[in-house]
Every structure is written in structure tokens, then in C-alpha cells.
Design a protein around this nucleic acid. Structure first.
Length: 106
DNA sequence: AATATGACTGTCT
DNA sequence: AAGACAGCCATAT
């Protein structure tokens, strides 16, 4: 089946993001894995699409790319959050995803 | 129906 | 370390 259930998909994705505790982070790929396993579809790019459309009300800065860098130009905003929350950072200013990675569950 | 696009990822250079 | 390329899945035009 193509044409996945976006209501469900969006809900699950946002759920995962909300689960990420302060000072930790997760990746699009991980969320895609968890949600994809449950709904049988999607991929990192679809998670990104959900975030772009409905990522406003959730802590989007705790969702980073696989290498720990931020997807777009929210770096300035996110940087403050990271310093605030004590998120492990690398020298380059992006998240030390290897240390901060959080795996959400449904 | 075909092509382009996107808050992605992994591999190769 | 940084850029190019190719897969990837669903939407938009």
C-alpha cells in the first residue's frame, strides 16, 4: 500500500519527538525506523516532511540528522537550547549524536 | 503519466 | 573533512 495514513503517521512522529528528554536528541532515521515498523511505510524524508508541516509545537531541535547536525537554519535557535539543556555538543557546534542519541518507543 | 522536490542517509571520491 | 551521487518514499505540479 502506498498512500500511508498521514494522520496516524504524523501523530506517531510527533509522539516520538515529544518523548525525547531534555539534553538528549534523536534522528530522522531512528524515528522513521520506529514509526515505519509500526505503520509499515515512510522513511527519513517523510519524517522530515512531517516536521516541516507540524514540527512547530514540538521540540524540533531535539531531532537532528544522522551526523548530529541540524537540517536547516535553525542552528542559532537550537544552539541556545542545547547550551540550556546541556546537550552534548561537538566542536563543530552540532550535537554529539553518539552520546546524546535517544531511541523513542511507541 | 513524468519530473522535480524535500527539516534524509550511506557510500565514494 | 567536505562535496558529489545515488537510493529512498510520498507529495506537488
Amino acid at each position: 500500500m502506498s498512500g500511508i495514513d498521514w494522520e496516524e503517521y504524523t501523530e506517531r512522529v510527533l509522539q516520538c519527538v515529544e518523548q525525547v528528554p531534555s539534553g538528549r536528541a534523536t534522528t530522522y532515521g531512528v524515528i522513521a525506523e520506529v514509526v515505519g515498523a509500526a505503520l509499515g511505510g515512510g522513511g527519513p524524508r517523510l519524517v522530515g516532511s512531517v516536521m516541516a508541516a507540524h514540527g512547530g509545537p514540538v521540540p524540533w531541535w531535539r531531532v537532528v540528522r544522522a551526523d548530529g547536525s541540524l537540517p536547516s537554519s535553525h542552528q542559532g535557535e537550537a544552539r541556545l537550547r542545547y547550551l540550556e539543556e546541556g546537550t552534548p555538543l561537538r566542536a563543530s557546534g552540532n550535537v554529539d549524536i553518539k552520546r546524546a542519541l535517544f531511541r523513542p518507543q511507541l
